[in-house]
């Protein structure tokens, strides 16, 4: 699907170590590479501490990378020196945060919160134009213009997350990094926000990096998914493919642990335990097992995984035949 599409973001061997060199060194992100194509949603999933949020924050330069490159529109963003270039970048990549309560400054009105990016990048125009743009954005995210003069604490979690989205849209971004944007919301509100994100993406051709631990939502919203574990991407594939034929044992264990809202399948569900294998000096990296399906492994494991892939494919075929 995205073969003919242009790469908007290329992350190459990105590393972020905290307390580098000291005894408490934490390799939060350890050699992560992936591409995001224009207009797609790339999901990054994993459990807490796997480095998914750090990856997002390093891309948007809240953290300084320890190593590696990030190319945005083909340009290495760590090497942009001119302030005009940096400003443009800060406008084109926007972030939506997890906590709808901590991500909006409680002392500003909704209008000032949404317009802040416009003010910083001198896009506001006259105060009338600024106001109208805020109204437009509020309506776009399903709020109304009367909300402009209010303060964040007057809104529910879902509404606040809409304000966070409006704020990101205010500066016409190309890429939005959504860091767990729905995990703090109630189930019925999550669906509203996800639908809104999808609608905006359709209308404006936005590209998303969607970071989450909730695998079922990630599957729904993403075109491709990277599964992170201990600072590395262990498996990367189209989302349907990943859920149908998980190959890496960590992905399998993660998928098998999700409880489904379905009592019958819950009674049958078998959880798979993951034991991380020590790499005995083997050079491990992401290798393509099936078309567009990558697994982090050593050279000699490739055939094993290919075999596994075929077995799962065959099983699926058979069970489909049974149903029909």
């Amino acid at each position: 699907m995205s073969e003919d599409k242009r790469k908007l973001l290329e992350v190459l061997h990105l590393k972020k170590y905290f307390n580098q060199g000291s005894r408490q060194e934490v390799r939060a992100v350890d050699d992560v590479s992936f591409d995001i194509y224009e207009g797609e949603t790339f999901g990054l999933v994993g459990e807490s501490g796997c480095g998914k949020s750090t990856t997002g924050r390093t891309i948007i330069q809240l953290y300084e990378a320890t190593g590696g490159e990030v190319l945005f529109n083909g340009q290495n963003i760590f090497k942009i020196k001119k302030s005009a270039g940096r400003n443009k970048l800060r406008q084109e990549i926007q972030m939506i945060f997890q906590d709808p309560f901590a991500s909006l400054d409680p002392h500003l009105t909704v209008k000032d919160i949404i317009a802040e990016g416009m003010d910083v990048h001198h896009l506001s125009g006259t105060s009338k134009e600024r106001e109208n743009r805020v109204y437009e954005l509020l309506e776009e995210v399903g709020l109304n213009r009367e909300h402009a003069g209010r303060y964040p604490h007057e809104f529910s979690g879902g509404q606040r997350q809409r304000i966070g989205i409006a704020r990101a849209l205010a500066v016409d971004p190309k890429l939005i990094i959504a860091d767990e944007p729905i995990s703090a919301l109630d189930v019925s509100i999550q669906a509203q926000v996800v639908n809104l994100l999808k609608k905006i993406q359709r209308q404006q051709g936005l590209t998303y990096l969607f970071i989450a631990h909730d695998l079922s939502m990630v599957k729904y919203i993403s075109d491709r998914i990277g599964v992170m574990h201990q600072g590395m991407i262990v498996e990367l594939a189209d989302s349907e493919e990943l859920y149908r034929t998980p190959l890496h044992p960590y992905t399998e264990s993660l998928l098998s642990a999700i409880p489904q809202p379905d009592p019958i399948s819950e009674r049958k569900r078998q959880r798979l335990e993951y034991q991380s294998k020590k790499g005995n000096g083997q050079m491990k990296k992401l290798r393509e097992i099936a078309p567009r399906h990558f697994v982090y492994c050593a050279e000699h494991e490739v055939t094993e995984y290919q075999q596994k892939y075929k077995t799962i494919q065959n099983e699926k075929e058979e069970s489909r035949d049974e149903i029909n």
Binding site: I60, R86, N87, R90, Q94
Partner: peptide, 24 residues
């Protein structure tokens, strides 16, 4: 996170201090 946001869009130090920090 609202401070992280301000940094991520490149709000300058004094503006951040007067607009976001001091009220808080």
């Amino acid at each position: 996170e609202f401070m992280l946001y301000a940094r991520s869009i490149g709000v300058r130090m004094w503006r951040t201090i007067f607009k976001h920090l001091i009220p808080g």
